[in-house]
């Protein structure tokens, strides 16, 4: 299987602060890679290096068989990029911005453009400064997904989107995936990334986290229950660890079946219960704990 992009041992530092340490990654043609990690993990820096917007300090990078340090423009002609922390030209009207952003590309998917315009329902005649954060993100997505390119690098595409818009985005990305396009997307919403990605890559403190360690942490989390009980409710036996969270909820670790353990509590005393919480924050916390000796 040919790789659309490949990074080997990539290092990057800003001044004296190291940001990436020997990052290795590769994405095959037609694959969707979910790129996850906490803020400051180096996800955006990786995407910028892939486009040649930021120079690497060490290692090798190839995108479409080209080195972004030398052939950034040729790579960008075949790649659409949605930056994570970006703003649009607020003084422009939505339609003018879209024309401006799309005119850089050799070809755009007009049916997809029409469909997305209809789906997102953006008031394109209005100036962008009057848009909500979600509307701005939809407009940025429109400008990024409509160009006909082979590779899409999307840094937090679901930022500021509501649940409906996230589902719409998921459908569009699936459609691009079916059309054989390669997609790399970073997100804080693990469920969104998992629903789409063929493969997940965790980045933590500038290092790619080993797959086996991620699996171990996620398995451990599957036995955790986040619980809110009426005051004075006793916990049944059979749990390993109880931790009180800042918001007053209890995090209980159960070695066996968490649902069977939960069933032993009087349901009228349970205010809320979440089993197998796989929020990214918990996974990151778990990864840090596993690494500590």
């Amino acid at each position: 299987m040919s790789h659309v992009l490949e990074m080997r041992g990539v290092d990057k530092r800003y001044g004296t602060r190291p940001v990436l340490h020997g990052v290795d990654l590769h994405v095959a043609r037609g694959e969707v890679l979910g790129f996850v990690g906490p803020n400051g993990a180096g996800k955006s820096t990786c995407l910028r290096i892939l486009l040649g917007l930021t120079r690497r300090d060490g290692g090798a990078v190839q995108v479409h068989g080209l080195d972004p340090a030398w052939d950034s423009l040729a790579i960008r002609r075949r790649t659409a990029y949605l930056p994570g922390e970006t703003s649009l030209y607020l003084h422009m009207r939505g339609s003018a911005f879209l024309e401006f952003a799309l005119r850089f590309y050799a070809a755009v998917d007009l049916p997809l453009r029409r469909r997305l315009e209809e789906l997102f329902g953006l008031p394109l005649h209005r100036r962008i400064r009057t848009y909500s954060a979600g509307m701005k993100q939809k407009l940025a997505l429109l400008a990024t997904l409509v160009p006909e390119v082979e590779l899409y690098l999307l840094d937090e595409p679901d930022r500021a989107l509501d649940a409906t818009a996230r589902l719409q985005l998921r459908d569009v990305l699936r459609e691009l995936q079916r059309a054989g396009r390669t997609i790399v997307l970073s997100s804080h919403h693990l469920s969104e990334v998992e629903a789409l990605a063929d493969r997940l890559l965790f980045l933590h403190e500038g290092r790619v986290v080993d797959d086996a360690r991620v699996r171990a942490v996620r398995d451990a989390l599957r036995h955790e229950i986040r619980l809110r009980l009426e005051a004075g409710t006793p916990l049944p036996d059979g749990h390993e660890q109880v931790r009180e969270e800042p918001d007053g909820a209890l995090r209980v670790s159960v070695p066996g079946n968490p649902y069977a353990w939960l069933a032993r509590i009087d349901p009228r005393r349970i205010r809320s219960a979440e089993v197998g919480d796989t929020r990214l924050e918990e996974i990151y916390k778990g990864l840090t704990e596993v690494r500590a000796p």
Partner: peptide, 13 residues
């Protein structure tokens, strides 16, 4: 204004 990354991400030198 954080528009530079969007602009430089387009295929233009």
């Amino acid at each position: 204004n954080q528009t530079l990354e969007f602009l430089l991400g387009r295929p233009v030198s």
